[in-house]
Design a protein around this nucleic acid. Structure first.
Lengths: 130, 130
DNA sequence: CCACTAAGAATATCTTAGCCT
DNA sequence: AGGCTAAGATATTCTTAGTGG
């Protein structure tokens, strides 16, 4: 289960579809599906989008699998309830507030980096009092 | 900012790279980058992976943008480069710093909620001076 | 310097039809 | 049925070289 084709096949079987049926759903010949599954072809953006929608997975999963570092980090993060809450929140925030948070993160990151004995800490960013 | 090309261009400019420089980093000609950005070409899986890694975003973001039809909020968030950045950052942070950021998020949330005319804004959280 | 375009060669893709299990 | 493969037509992709801002 290490390639795009493997993952596609797995998803197709999970849905109990034949290559022909899947092809019909996607508007391509069954041989095209066969090729996808054996990594003989690479679907273009439109097809990637269709596949991801049909199987309700991310394109990242299809193309890169679970080993994508982004995905891994996301999964780790999603297992942390605090994270889940914070990130959902961040997502729903007004643009301005979100930027504020990102700035704050940037600030903390810089501070962590520059943490050497005897060194002065940078000032925190100013809050928008608006 | 609605297409793969637009997003690629935006990411490239954010990194202050010319098409030529980006091409060099990716092992393709500058004209190829130009084509990508004007949606005249579609990079294959390998290039999609390289681009996502280089710019530290998901392939979903590159290919589908934020309007990806995956409905779940977590997945929307997953397609937001700002979110991806925040998540990666938080993930690598010391526990203490992470809590600080989460507190800050909490503060901003409360402030957003309570934004009614005439109402006093809460004070921002204190920074750990350590 | 930077970005875009044209032309041509090299590749990749898709379908149909046939074959195997 | 279900899946794989070949062959040929189609379409895409990439580079080089050249144009223009």
């Amino acid at each position: 289960m290490d390639t795009f084709g493997d993952r596609l096949r797995e998803l197709r079987k999970k849905k109990k579809l034949s290559q022909k049926e899947l092809g019909k759903l996607l508007g391509v010949a069954e041989s095209t599906i066969s090729m996808y599954e054996r990594n003989g072809r690479q679907p273009d953006f439109e097809m990637q989008d269709k596949l991801a929608n049909l199987f309700d997975v991310s394109i990242d999963y299809l193309v890169r699998g679970k080993e994508s570092s982004l995905k891994k980090q996301a999964e780790e993060a999603y297992n942390d309830p605090d994270f889940q809450y914070a990130m959902r929140s961040l997502n729903g925030m007004e643009r301005e507030s979100k930027e504020e948070v990102l700035n704050f993160i940037e600030y903390v990151l810089q501070r962590e980096k520059g943490r050497k004995p005897g060194q002065r800490q940078p000032n925190p960013p100013r809050f928008n009092k608006e």
